[in-house]
Nucleic acid binder design. Structure first.
Lengths: 237, 237
DNA sequence: CTGTCTATTTATAAGGT
DNA sequence: TACCTTATAAATAGACA
């Protein structure tokens, strides 16, 4: 875990493999020892390696034999049990990594569109050069979100002093308040990216995609909005 | 291992203990899986906890039973063997920690004396207030070392350009060179701390203490010195 | 090989939701 | 209960002695 990320495959170089084995055996031994001490459980491990004729055993041969004997006498127990088996472990890791990946992709997308927006603002790129409808849609959603933050900030600055949160007195989550606003705001509108993800997601696992609270930049009179998505973070933070 | 350092004793709070058990079981499982994959060894673990009627087993019950059976048929093997037992593991940790402690104590002492020296240099403390003979001795040793670094630096700056290390051409370790010097230097003289440590160390484990290369601040003509302790670091680095 | 060092990756204790 | 998050402690790959 240093200098380079470990690949999950047999280490090719036999010398490196041996060194790694020794290091990791030490680490494993400590982990077992900690688990046993901290949680007061009986544990043992048996490792057959090409480096020792006899297996490496923890915590000691007699104790491991005792545990192994106790365990040998178990009934075969149903296969579907939630025992810690390799397949279950791997499935668990896979789904965890898939979730991580999704989160990362979402974050990447946000960063990408944010970057696009700043390019447009700085003039290093013209909006006319952005021909990708997905990018435009997400950019619109992003700008809508920023506008909302600005509106909220304005509302906050204009509030009467004593009650700290005037606009929020109707409730925590679903407070809908009439906002005099020069820019009309629609209800949440899924971006293209989000819709695509929803359409392709077979697991039914809700993925909100990027900018689930996207808003149209059209003008309207007054409208209602939910403050559910505003958590105090301000544009730039 | 976050937020707080783990104590090596049974976790008192049963709820925390259970959570820790589950987290660490997951970690242990991953470690076993990694070891098995990376090094191509057969491993299994059996953990009896109060949280499951059946033991937690890795990688799977049949595989563990197989390994356990193989291992059950082993002869009792001599007790003195270098097998990974709890006692050996603990002894190993203890000596490792003792070494760490010694290193830290040495470093602390160095820092302390360094601080004392800077106080004297800055005038916030007078040398006359330092009545502790041990401190004085170590301070002397420290100053001697600094002087050597200065001398070495001077020698380096005065060297003819082409050969990079003129003063070192006699050899790597034991080069003894006549140095014209306004401050005489004696051969390495153990500090009080070092002598104390040597006297009290029952293991015969060589502990060099602080400033093993300490020098007297007496004046002499020319003298010899070993450059063994100079590794290129300059005072202030 | 056996150990040391250091930059990084992992594991995880507390504290929230 | 069972997750998630975050700051920190630990483990460790690669390089070197």
């Amino acid at each position: 875990m240093p200098r380079a990320k470990t690949q999950h495959m047999l280490i090719a170089d036999p010398r490196v493999r041996k060194v790694t084995f020794e290091k990791r055996m030490k680490g494993l031994t400590k982990k077992l020892s900690d688990l046993s001490t901290l949680c007061g459980v009986d544990a043992c491990a048996i490792i057959y390696s090409p480096y020792n004729k006899q297996p490496d055993v923890w915590p000691s041969l007699p104790e491991a034999q005792l545990l192994a004997a106790r365990f040998q006498s178990l009934p075969e127990m149903e296969k579907g049990k939630k025992m810690t088996n390799q397949e279950g472990f791997l499935r668990q890791r896979i789904s965890k990594l898939q979730e991580q990946l999704k989160r990362q992709e979402k974050e990447n997308r946000e960063t990408e569109i944010n970057h696009l927006m700043y390019q447009c603002l700085a003039g290093s790129r013209s909006l006319g050069d952005v021909n990708n409808i997905v990018d435009l849609k997400d950019l619109e959603a992003l700008i809508g979100e920023k506008m909302n933050l600005i509106e909220e900030r304005i509302g906050y600055l204009r509030r009467p002093s004593p009650p700290l949160m005037v606009i929020d007195e109707g409730g925590d989550d679903q407070a809908e308040i009439a906002v005099p606003c020069s820019l009309g705001m629609s209800m949440p509108q899924p971006s293209f990216m989000e819709m695509e993800v929803i359409n392709n997601n077979p697991s039914g696992n809700q993925f909100t995609g990027f900018c689930g609270n996207g808003m149209m930049l059209t003008c309207g009179e007054t409208t209602t909005w939910s403050n559910h998505h505003f958590d105090g973070a301000f544009w730039g933070n």
